[in-house]
């Protein structure tokens, strides 16, 4: 205490000691800003992520699948909510965050700009997309910002059924008719590369990574998590008796990991820029829900005010 260490050094020392930073603690402005950006992107992804799967609720082919899908998508709303709450502890309101999303200023995971074309997509999304998401999320349970870490713990606990649900769905198709098998393989083919891109650019092209790692709001590099994902999926797909659309995928004894082919970042960048197949309609759907909900929210507030007056 007697030596004059800067606030910033003390802050970093706390992080290095694996202490959690809480909302009212002093933090560098850049830490706050980066966190708001990261947490809100994550929240937006959950909420926009409801749409591609929501697309199949009314067409789910059995009552059991229908309740599972509904419950899963509902969880995503919950996860968005937990994450918005975590972001709100940093001094920004949910409405401000929504506005950033709806105006196109904020980003969300590009994966949700791809269309869900068949029922098998519900399996592929659960298995691959949630599988990739959970790799990130498990790592974030130990991130330095307390509210974010706690939200992640809750999310991971709830997510655990999502990936299983997707895998089980594909497994059922894989044991079904030739048409069902083809449907499953087609879905895997379409979702594989976009899922791989969910981990973000290669480490060499990832501008914010180093600082975020130092702040422990990112615990593993993009490429590390991507490799972990490939190693997991490459094994699981054997159980499905299907293939991944990557001719270069093979086990590398020396590395103790699977090798895989190069990712086509041109497509990734285009989708990121807004040129994915569904960018416009996803945002339009969220905007519509928000705008058409305005009178409902206003009514509820007006009623609450009246009730308070009459007490």
């Amino acid at each position: 205490m007697s030596t004059q260490v800067s606030l910033e050094e003390r802050f970093q020392a706390r992080i290095d000691a694996e202490q959690k930073i809480e909302p009212k603690d002093w933090m560098p402005e850049a830490y706050r800003k980066t966190l708001i950006r990261q947490i809100s992107q994550h929240a937006h992804s959950e909420v926009v992520g409801m749409l591609p799967e929501g697309n199949w609720i009314t067409r789910a082919p059995s009552l059991r699948r229908k309740v599972a899908l509904l419950a899963k998508i509902q969880d995503e709303a919950g996860h968005g909510l937990y994450l918005y709450s975590a972001a709100e502890t940093l001094g920004i309101s949910r409405e401000e965050l929504y506005n950033e999303l709806l105006s196109g200023k904020a980003k969300y995971s590009s994966i949700f700009n791809y269309p869900t074309l068949t029922w098998a997509d519900m399996g592929a999304v659960g298995w691959l997309v949630d599988g990739a998401a959970i790799m990130n999320q498990v790592a974030l349970c130990k991130c330095s910002y307390g509210p974010y870490a706690r939200a992640m713990v809750r999310v991971c606990k709830e997510e655990s059924f999502h990936q299983r649900q997707g895998f089980e769905l594909l497994l059922t198709l894989s044991k079904g008719t030739p048409e069902q098998r083809a449907m499953a393989q087609d879905a895997i083919n379409r979702w594989w590369w976009p899922s791989m891109m969910m981990f973000g650019p290669n480490d060499s092209d990832s501008p914010h990574s180093a600082q975020s790692m130092r702040w422990k709001i990112k615990r593993y590099s993009n490429d590390t998590l991507r490799q972990k994902f490939v190693d997991m999926i490459a094994e699981q797909i054997k159980v499905l008796n299907m293939t991944l659309p990557d001719p270069d995928l093979r086990w590398n004894e020396e590395r103790g990991h699977y090798d895989f082919g190069a990712i086509d970042w041109t497509e990734f960048n285009e989708v990121l820029k807004g040129n994915g197949p569904c960018n416009r309609e996803r945002l339009a759907a969220r905007r519509k829900a928000w705008e058409e909900g305005a009178w409902v929210r206003e009514a509820a507030m007006a009623h609450a005010a009246k009730r308070q007056q009459s007490v």
């Binding site: 609720i57 009552l63 509904l70 998508i73 709303a77 909510l81 829900a289 409902v296 929210r297």
Partner: peptide, 26 residues
């Protein structure tokens, strides 16, 4: 009610309606 999922006036209300849907389908 399931048709509302993802399109509700606010996240909390969205979740409430999905709960109703799940009860009814159950």
């Amino acid at each position: 009610l399931g048709e509302w999922c993802g399109h509700g006036p606010e996240l909390e209300i969205d979740m409430a309606m999905t709960n109703l849907a799940l009860d009814l389908i159950g």
